[in-house]
Write a protein that binds this DNA or RNA. Structure first.
Lengths: 138, 138
DNA sequence: GCTTGACCTTACCATCATGGGAAGGCCTAT
DNA sequence: ATAGGCCTTCCCATGATGGTAAGGTCAAGC
């Protein structure tokens, strides 16, 4: 199977497959006489694993650990669960951060009449005092 | 005021102040005979504006528009509100995305006993079928 | 056998906002 | 005069992805 077919079958672009190879996330595959990369079904399965992990927000660095556990038949599921929980915690942190931004902005936007007049509490907040954000979270 | 003082006063690092200047987000300030950048209080105010906007997640490109409106005394507050609303919408989208990831992971982690045994539904999902994510959101 | 088009290869550049570091100049206090 | 704390510019790195360009390969149709 050439890289294009592996890309279609796995949902990982050919570009990214080469990138993952260059960073050592995946092993270098065999080559044809002409230098074309050749992939097997199990390579495609590995690529799908990576694709799903990315879809769940794991950084490539973590995926390397997940892959190692995947291949390790004597792994402890506790190790996998820990990686998943760390990812959950990280997502939660980012969500909370963005939620705070959103609420602050919503407050400001609600206070802005949004018409032809120049007066605007959004700009006033950005340009002045110690930020509504800080006040709201005090 | 030298760049270090402006950085402290605004909360924007000296490094980023130079970067914003290089990209044209802020105008080049005056220089001393020795080539040191010199900042005024109103420069610091502008930098604080940028800092707060970044804290609310605006990309630098949007901040350029915000700054233009800030300086334009005949602006329409509707334009500011629209930028804010776009940012709110973008945040909301990203939050929903991450929330979906988190829920999927939470499901998988809940199903993993997390002990010394190798069996793990997290790895099973990543390695097999059409992803719990897709199933959950169908 | 030759052309065409679809594929492959490598190599480089760009993103976005930020930090790090090196090499060298300036300024102030001791 | 020297030390150390600023400042300057320039280059490199991040993380994951896409784009592009120049060139090689392969299969189908003429």
């Amino acid at each position: 199977m050439n890289i294009g077919d592996a890309a279609k079958a796995s949902g990982v672009s050919a570009k990214m497959i080469r990138y993952y190879e260059s960073t050592g996330l995946i092993p270098a595959p065999g080559r044809t006489g002409a230098g074309y990369r050749v992939y097997s079904d199990s390579d495609v399965q590995m690529l799908r694993f990576i694709r799903r992990s990315r879809d769940l927000g794991f950084p490539v660095e973590r995926i390397a650990e997940l892959l190692a556990l995947w291949r390790d038949r004597s792994r402890h599921s506790a190790d996998v669960k820990r990686l998943a929980q760390d990812q959950i915690d990280g997502l939660e942190r980012k969500i909370a951060e963005m939620q705070a931004m959103k609420e602050t902005l919503q407050h400001l936007a609600d206070a802005c009449c949004g018409d032809h007049r120049p007066d605007c509490p959004i700009l006033a907040d950005l340009g002045n005092g110690p930020s509504l954000l800080r006040i709201m979270h005090r």
